[in-house]
């Protein structure tokens, strides 16, 4: 039977001291769109739910000191409706629109998404390619962890039992750049990604490439980045980079997709994602949010 207590602190300090006191017996609640079901299915059995939604300090969404800061309580709907995000973090904007549907996005947060840390988490790869930093606080201090180091295994992150993620900051790009986020779902309606590809390219032809749902954690593909580095992509380069992708990813087959199809789509989506990112940098088209597959 569900038997837990519930607190809704109004300040971060209060939340941190609850966290310190209750540690692993507490769960942090944001939109709850993951946690609720984990509790329902008895995967998690917290004794205390600490609801962070009403903490003002976590609700900020702003540009400051060369980065966009996304508070832990910011929902996907807020991200999607933000001009700042649309303009400065277009890949994150594009991926946020593909999370679930409106009724979920109105509650679901990006921080909840990455803290839940399933391999298919929508926000993992777009944050990784932008060198985002995750800010984590406990009663005894704060630390910042690059997104690439945040995920330690399926449903596991570096966040400790007395800690709270307070925000994510995404450094602004200098100069021209293009991004893309391509999601493989079984149809256009709501689905959990079976493969996710995120690509960033800048005007000096530096690339960042990351894949989700094709390994235990979302992963960057440094081999492919190296192949393409400094060059405008040509067919032979793409082929070489693609084989780097295929050598790096390690998808499993499950009821959502077979291993073979995931691998096949890793390659197909790679081309689409590179193509879109480059073309967006150079021409501004296709518009962010346009369907890429």
């Amino acid at each position: 039977m569900l038997n837990f207590d519930y607190r809704r602190p109004e300040s971060l300090d209060e939340a941190l001291s609850l966290r310190k006191e209750w540690g692993g017996k507490s769960s942090l609640l944001m939109g709850g769109t993951d946690l609720f079901l984990a509790i329902e299915e008895e995967v998690r059995r917290p004794e205390l739910l600490i609801d962070l939604k009403k903490i003002r300090a976590l609700s900020g969404l702003e540009e400051k000191d060369g980065a966009v800061h996304i508070g832990a309580a910011v929902t996907y709907s807020e991200l999607i409706h933000s001009d700042l995000v649309h303009q400065k973090l277009p890949g994150i904007w594009e991926s946020s629109r593909l999370v679930a549907s409106v009724g979920i996005r109105n509650s679901a947060t990006m921080v909840g998404n990455i803290c839940n840390a399933v391999p298919s988490a929508e926000s993992a790869t777009p944050l990784m390619i932008r060198d985002a930093v995750i800010h984590i606080t406990s009663a005894s201090g704060s630390r910042s962890v690059p997104a690439v180091e945040f995920f330690t295994g399926p449903r596991r992150t570096v966040v400790k039992d007395d800690e709270i993620v307070t925000s994510i900051s995404v450094p602004l790009m200098k100069g021209k750049f293009g991004e893309s986020y391509v999601k493989l779902g079984r149809y256009r309606g709501e689905d959990i990604a079976q493969v996710a590809t995120a690509v960033l390219v800048d005007e000096n032809w530096n690339y960042r490439i990351a894949y989700g749902a094709v390994g235990p954690v979302p992963m960057g593909i440094p081999g492919a980045e190296a192949v393409l580095k400094g060059k405008k992509p040509a067919a032979d380069l793409i082929e070489k980079a693609k084989s780097e992708v295929l050598n790096t990813v390690s998808p499993i087959g499950d009821i959502r997709a077979s291993k073979e199809y995931r691998l096949h789509m890793c390659a197909v989506m790679f081309e689409k994602a590179i193509d879109a990112a480059v073309s967006r940098m150079e021409t501004g088209a296709p518009a962010y949010g346009a369907r890429l597959i």
Partner: peptide, 14 residues
């Protein structure tokens, strides 16, 4: 905003 009432605890709506 629309929400899924099946995916929320009532206390959250306080």
């Amino acid at each position: 905003k629309t929400v899924r009432s099946c995916l929320m605890y009532a206390v959250e709506a306080d």
